[in-house]
Design a binder for these strands. Structure first.
Lengths: 341, 341
DNA sequence: TTGTAAGCGTTATCAG
DNA sequence: CTGATAACGCTTACAA
């Protein structure tokens, strides 16, 4: 068995440079508190040994990890990718590392992940959406862990949030659809339970319908997890009705893409036979044909601002005020006027 | 300023349960070495305090982190998502946590990430592809860090690999295209430098062409990063030629999706005016229309097997043998026969 | 400017 | 089966 050469430590560097470990530590963390000469000596020892500080030891001693944890519902589809990427870039910029885990939309898994991330020394946490057991907020509060919510802005939430008004965004889209003359509207929504974004989007549609004076009672809604396949299945189901809808509003672009595929498979023309809309404006929206009318969400801006705010909260022990971002409707050919009666 | 209640420690639990810290530790890690009675007492103290072990301290003391690090080129598109998801699930199953970081296809960033993950105590590493500075392999070897390569199988690589034969896979696809009668073929490849998967795929195409007796010299290749936009741009460029290609083989589905979109924008019919193929068989391939002929890669199986093998390497200090997985061509309507002369 | 030394919260070795 | 106690590698007062 070959001898296992383990990693060089601060001590090794100190010995090689002929200084104390404290000095080496200073060279690495606060170089300006060390004179040029010794700094150089230390640096060459570091290089010679290929020294890398042991993270665990550093965290223990400093009680800071310069790590931010984020828990997102899923990595499988691209809903969170762009925003998270921007979040990560901004964090990196500020000297922080991002630790991501995904909860598969399961509350208990999310809770476990929160504990895990905290145990790992995360200085702050990014969570998606507001709907979760209040005990989690108590826990975070008691432990004084800075946490921020993204992808959904609410003014009076327990934790500050950086995001947009899901309800209003979908309300506007639905209004637009109605204004084109659609009267038979159906919805393919994500699972609403435990997901305020999904819930609020449906509410936005309801608002628009009752506003318009239409019968909101018979609004057909299919709830299904955010996966392409499910969008296809749901579309199928909705089109089985005796009187088919003329427009289907989907909870996000992923579901909409599934619906579009199914429409094509069934030989239905979009938008002539049925209009379909999405939400998010991820790349997918421009890949399906026809391209998807959807709600544009400023993912990168949201990620960046969330990072800035969270770092601020961590470093200044402040509470964070949250920020509401604007969305806008993106008109593309998947939405048209309804066919004549 | 409210008093900051910091996390309960082993000591707190020990005191509350009236035992030593050693006993508490044993209750948590090797419960069978503790009698029922004390174990119960300890457990209730743990619950009462909401104790979670401090990860950094545990790593320092145990010199094991039950953490596996993975460095992937990008999270932005879905190329690695499915495989990584399976990798993660299998790791979780075995009691390990996955730490992911992305290198943006930059070798120096990857190197930094490797060091970072090791400093963070990763017990093992998953890397994508074989092409990298040999010094990295020396470093890994010297530090005795178990590492495994995925997404590309090579029999005699320095590190064991779990993946497929990129060259052969693309060779077969190209052969198939040629057998349909295509004689003017062009390629939209990913950046080849530092990316053996991209390089080998192009070589596979070259092989097929020279095999077929065609002039391989004038094979038009555009190299561009794996992004949808770039696929579109590259397609544009290739179609500017006086004699247009009748088939365009793309380095992956993302580039192919971009090419398809551009074709549509230019009013070209796929496959009647030009055939387009992809590689990977990610969801995207079935979303574009017409659906994409591509090479199916068993991403989930690859991820799962990589996890199994890496855990085995970590736990038994073994070297790992690697495994080659099979790919298969998936025929869909984006590929047809060339138009008559 | 630099060195000394006391933790940080676990695990693991040895006694008991 | 359980309890002391010595690491683990680093940061940070406090001294010099």
């Amino acid at each position: 068995m070959a001898k296992l050469r383990s990693a060089p430590t601060l001590d090794d560097v100190a010995k090689m440079a002929g200084v104390s470990t404290a000095t080496v530590s200073r060279c690495l963390n606060t170089p300006d508190r060390v004179v040029e000469a010794t700094r150089k000596r230390v640096q060459s020892a570091v290089d010679a040994l290929g020294y890398t500080p042991n993270f665990a030891a550093r965290v223990m001693a400093a009680k800071r990890s310069f790590t931010i944890g984020a828990i997102i519902p899923t990595m499988e589809n691209a809903i969170f990718a762009r925003g998270l990427q921007a979040f990560q870039e901004e964090l990196h910029h500020r000297g922080y590392t991002l630790l991501v885990s995904s909860s598969a939309y399961k509350p208990d898994i999310e809770e476990e992940q929160i504990r895990t991330l905290i145990a790992r020394g995360a200085d702050g946490l990014l969570l998606i959406g507001h709907d979760r057991d209040p005990k989690i907020y108590d826990y975070l509060n008691q432990r004084k862990i800075p946490a921020l919510i993204a992808w959904s802005y609410l003014p009076d939430s327990r934790l500050p949030s950086v995001g947009f008004d899901n309800r209003k965004a979908m309300f506007e889209l639905a209004n637009h659809v109605l204004s084109l003359g659609h009267e038979r509207i159906a919805v393919i929504s994500g699972i609403v339970e435990g997901n305020d974004r999904a819930r609020l989007r449906v509410e936005g549609i309801r608002d628009a319908i009752s506003h318009s004076g239409l019968e909101s009672g018979d609004l057909k809604i299919v709830e299904t997890p955010y996966e392409i396949e499910n969008g296809a299945t749901a579309f199928c189901e909705l089109m089985k009705a005796e009187t088919r809808p003329t427009a289907i509003l989907c909870g996000n672009d992923v579901l909409a893409a599934g619906a579009m595929r199914q429409a094509q498979e069934m030989g239905l023309d979009v938008p002539d036979d049925v209009s379909i809309t999405g939400f998010d404006d991820i790349e997918l929206a421009r890949i399906v044909s026809p391209e998807l009318t959807t709600v544009h969400v400023p993912h990168r801006e949201m990620g960046r601002k969330a990072a800035l705010q969270l770092v601020e909260m961590v470093e200044n022990q402040t509470d964070g005020e949250g920020e509401q971002l604007a969305t806008r409707i993106v008109n593309r050919p998947s939405l048209g006027r309804p066919a004549q009666g």
